[in-house]
Simulated scan of single mutants.
Amino acid sequence: MASSSTDASSNPDSSSISPIFQFSDADLIIQTSDKIAFKVHRSIMSLVSRVFRDMLSLNVIPQSSTYSSHQNIVNVSEDSASMDATLRFIYPFPRPVFRTLEPIIILLEIADKYDISIITSTLQTLLLSETDFLENSSSRLYAIAKRLQLLRLERATELILLRHPHILSVKDFTADEQDVITVDDVRKLEFYRAQRIPDVLAALNECLNEDDLLLEPPPCACRRKRSQNGGLEYQDECLAWSALLNLYRNKIEDEPGTDILDPSLREEVIRYTSCRDIFEYFFGEEYMYAGLLRHISQRVKEVPWTYSAEYEEKKKRERDESARVRASAVFTYEGDA
């Protein structure tokens, strides 16, 4: 926490001055845990940080006895590297380049502590635009978003965890982050997935039954059979197409984010179907089922991922049932009939 103490540790006599943040008209000194003094401006810090504004408005911060009588001193627990990076989001200096997640988390925690919204907003936007951070650290970012109440980041990571349920792993969390993820969070994600799967299957069936999208199956080898009079006739169903639909239905049970347009699904079907013509119909320039697959993909994307109202209703039913059971509880004793 920021401190306005007047002990020796808050006196900048023994401090070095930041090589960048040493404005000649500064009227506020921020002294870090490693004794680096940042000479900045009360007005700017009050504008960007509610915490600094409140401290400065209460006029409880001691004045410097070293630099100038009009300069107040704030002793903070952050080190100079963290404070330097923080101030670069407030003043027009080059900002850090983030190659790992940890520096971002440190700055988000500082922004939360001092209520610096420009840092919170900027770093949330950065994380939402960086696919590597989102995909590789989604479990941890979900916990961080909940702990620091970063609603945009929470929604984004929640969607990733819904699409890929197997990546929610507590081993990625720090101790602070483990305390944030609750049983209710896990149950909510499981409920959302369970609700969405039948909706996806219903959307798939609706697409397959739309009259203007019904396909005449291709005249491929897997449909040919000999008629009783020795001629060739075709079965109603393309075996490879049926196999693709069944594979997709099974995949979304484990990986709800599976897209029916994913070429790997068709590649898998090709590996275990005997139709010699299937490659042409599944991977041609304008393959036979392209339009229908695109339509199914778009329709499935329209199915919601979250079911907040339904989940709250489910919890209400559970609470009501729990209350009913408790109300019917009877205490019995030895000798009771």
Results as ranks from 00 to 15, higher is better:
E158Q: 14
P19I: 05
L108Q: 10
V170C: 09
Q63S: 12
S64P: 01
L293K: 00
P219Y: 11
M83H: 02
V51P: 00
D54R: 12
Q63M: 10
L127A: 07
L126D: 05
S82A: 15
V48E: 01
E158N: 14
R193L: 09
T258V: 11
R53P: 02
D236I: 09
R299T: 06
K314V: 04
V300T: 02
Q22N: 15
F279G: 02
R276E: 13
P263C: 08
C275M: 04
D84Q: 11
V186I: 15
E312Q: 09
A309F: 08
S65I: 08
G291Y: 00
R53M: 13
P12W: 00
F133L: 11
D112H: 15
L201A: 05
V180N: 11
E321I: 09
Y192Q: 03
L293I: 05
A327P: 01
A8I: 14
L215H: 06
S68T: 09
D34F: 10
M55W: 10
I106H: 05
Q22H: 15
Q63C: 13
N205P: 04
A37F: 07
K251S: 12
I296M: 02
S33T: 13
R294L: 03
D25S: 14
K316R: 15
E233R: 15
E109P: 03
R53T: 07
D262F: 06
K314S: 05
R95G: 03
S64L: 02
K316A: 12
I197T: 06
V180D: 09
L232K: 11
I197A: 01
I110W: 02
A26R: 02
R299D: 01
